[in-house]
Amino acid sequence: MNQPNEDMNDKICVVTGAARGLGRAISEALARAGATRVYACDINMAPAQSWIGDYPNVTAATLDVCDPQALSELSGRILAEHGRVDVVVNNAGITRDALLDKMTESDWDLVMNVNLKGVFMMTQAMLPLMKLHNKGSIVSISSIVGTDGNIGQSNYAASKGGIISMTRGWAKEFARGGARIRANCIAPGFINTEMTQAVPEKVLDKMRARIPLGELGEPRDIAEGVLFLASERSRYITGQVLKIDGGLVL
């Protein structure tokens, strides 16, 4: 484990979809940056057993972001243990890809519920804990598919575009009355996760050929972007979308 710095000093952080992939990288980055506590949340925390023990400031929390009772229990727990939340990272998301004439209503509903409604419900549950001290940072993981679309991803594009629209509204809403509660998005491009590792190499080669920097991004690239938007280094940034895609969308 690397020596922590002070970017997240005294911060209480919550990350969804945290057991593996981007969520793991984000949780580890916040922990290394000195967060007092990182609540790493996922509907299945089993994959986190391989890494979470390396970070005494990370707490595993099993959570369905679409379950209001579970969200209420998590909010109550954090309030009792720390009295506030400083950083919320909405990372949980799924895909159910299909061309429009093949996409089922259940595919649409499931993706919209997890990717969009889940972000709404998680933020709604954590916002009162930020309002207790009128300060905080909400970082939601969107996608370049949410800004530019993609074939066979009508549901995913709609959900990720919806996150951007909600975030822009939240940036205005949450700053009323002098509050310093910021809301921003990150839009990743092609990132080297378990999902992309399952893609045939010839398809990955085509992906790389489209990226000006010539390679897939790594989870740490997204984690560093989250760390910036979560910290005081971005204190004057809100309502923005940070694309981390190697120049894929220009």
Rank of each mutant, 00 (worst) to 15 (best):
M166P: 00
G146V: 14
I94N: 02
N150Q: 08
A171S: 06
S159K: 07
V65F: 09
E105R: 00
Q153H: 06
A98P: 06
G152C: 04
V139I: 15
A175E: 08
L132P: 10
A157N: 04
D97M: 01
R168M: 06
S143I: 15
D148E: 15
G169F: 10
E173A: 14
D101F: 13
K160V: 10
L129W: 12
V65E: 00
Q69K: 13
N115L: 04
S137Y: 03
N134Q: 14
I78V: 04
N134F: 09
S72H: 11
G161S: 14
L71A: 04
V89Q: 01
G161Q: 08
D107E: 13
E81I: 06
A171Q: 05
R176D: 03
D107Y: 04
G146F: 14
C66N: 12
G93Y: 04
S142H: 03
N91S: 03
T123D: 00
E173H: 13
G162C: 08
I94P: 00
M126H: 11
H133E: 08
L74E: 00
G177T: 11
N91V: 04
V145L: 12
N115M: 04
D86P: 14
V139N: 05
A70S: 09
G146I: 09
S140Q: 09
G152K: 06
F174V: 13
K160S: 10
D67K: 07
I94S: 00
W170D: 04
H82F: 12
H133C: 12
S72Y: 14
L100S: 09
D107T: 12
M103Y: 12
L100E: 06
P128Y: 01
V89S: 00
K172S: 11
T95C: 07
G162V: 08
T62H: 08
